[in-house]
Write a protein that binds this DNA or RNA. Structure first.
Length: 380
DNA sequence: GTGCATGATTGGTT
DNA sequence: AACCAATCATGCAC
């Protein structure tokens, strides 16, 4: 975000303070100081003129110091001449007293922006953002403990415990990513704020040697800087909230999105379906078994995990679609019938190896049986 | 872009 | 609660 803007704005504030300084000098130009009228800044008597008397000497002191202040303020501080004057000013015996008076006048003339000095009531929008970030687990202590990766891994490891566990783990992983970015940025801003505050404070302290700057003024400046940075932080919070909202909506929408099962998973389901065509209603245990089997292919890097309810959906869809158009599925049915037959044959061969009962297996012995449909089309 | 395949959802039925 | 049937919405081959 715009760190440079903040810096620019703070620098503006500094420039404004410098303007204030000039105005003060003008305003006190006609003020009677130590009983003597001092004309406008630049129309001061020459700094080194002497008229002999002690009183006049003191007047001369004040006039001298004021003149130096004005010259330094108007000119570049880099100039060698200004350096000399600065040095002269610093060593001037009247300087502390005059600066103290100038600071007092500055405070009294109301140049301090009292309104902004007052403690602002907490911004309701900021509070909303904070509450949301806290509720979403972005701000505040980390939920559930452990790292994001660990949390995601734990969620994934729980497998088919919940239908949305995988999506949920994805959601949590992404949320943690947002959280990390948020905290990193926040830390960066705080660091930048501290650095900038220190820099400005040093600058003001340095300047306070050449122009009257009260500690209150420095405090105010720090306040201004902090406000600027907190407004940037609010932008960060807002962006984070938006990111969370987008993530949420995507997560919810994702429920409706579908991904095709892997070829292996479909094969497993089809094998079961066609080998149980007379009663293609797997029990809860069978569904769990199938879901497990299908999900194993995931660990081999294929497709995504399949839940029990997905297996139920698949069988529901398959039954209705098979029934609607048996002809279309005939080829597929024959294919899987042959497949299961071969499997069964292998199994049988392994079981009764070298057995005398080595009769050839019929295609249907593998479990394939013609479906029995009632007159209304219902699968029996 | 279009049409088909397919996983998910919804409302009704048993 | 499980299932059916219709429908939605996306994936994918062409």
């Amino acid at each position: 975000m715009s760190f440079s803007i903040c810096v620019a704005q703070c620098t503006d504030s500094l420039a404004a303070t410098m303007d204030d300084q000039a105005r003060i000098m003008q305003s006190i130009g006609g003020v009677s100081l130590a009983g003597h009228s001092v004309q406008g800044g630049m129309a001061l008597p020459p700094p080194h003129g002497h008229d002999g008397s002690d009183g006049d000497g003191r007047k001369q002191d004040i006039g001298d110091i004021l003149h130096q202040i004005m010259t330094i303020t108007d000119q570049s501080l880099d100039e060698a001449q200004a350096k000399n004057r600065k040095h002269g000013l610093n060593c001037h015996r009247m300087k502390p007293a005059l600066f103290s008076v100038l600071c007092e006048i500055k405070e009294k003339t109301g140049l301090s922006i009292r309104g902004s000095q007052e403690e602002d009531p907490p911004d309701p929008q900021l509070m909303r953002l904070d509450n949301m970030l806290l509720a979403e687990g972005v701000a505040g202590p980390e939920k559930g403990g452990g790292s994001a990766a660990a949390a995601a891994a734990a969620a994934a490891a729980s497998g088919a415990a919940g239908d949305n566990s995988i999506e949920h783990s994805d959601y949590r992983a992404k949320l943690t990513q947002i959280r990390q970015i948020y905290h990193t940025e926040l830390e960066k801003y705080e660091q930048a704020c501290n650095e900038f505050t220190t820099h400005v404070m040093n600058l003001l302290r340095e300047q306070s040697r050449t122009r009257p700057i009260s500690p209150k003024e420095i405090e105010r400046m720090v306040g201004i800087i902090h406000r600027k940075f907190s407004s940037i932080q609010m932008q960060l919070k807002q962006s984070t909230c938006e990111a969370v909202m987008i993530l949420r909506s995507r997560f919810l929408d994702a429920r409706r999105k579908r991904r095709n099962f892997s070829k292996q998973a479909t094969e497993i389901l089809n094998e079961y379906f066609y080998s149980h065509l007379s009663n293609p209603y797997p029990s809860e245990e069978a569904k769990e078994e199938l879901a497990k089997k299908c999900s194993i292919t995931v660990s081999q890097g294929v497709g995504s995990t399949i839940t029990v309810s997905q297996v139920s959906n698949w069988f529901g869809n398959k039954r209705i679609r098979y029934k609607k158009n048996i002809g279309k599925f005939q080829e597929e049915a024959n294919l899987y019938a042959a497949k299961t037959a071969v499997n069964a044959a292998h199994a049988a061969a392994a079981a009764v190896q070298n057995s005398q009962a080595n009769s050839p297996t019929t295609p249907n012995s593998g479990g394939y049986s013609a479906p029995c449909y009632q007159s209304d089309g219902r699968i029996q």
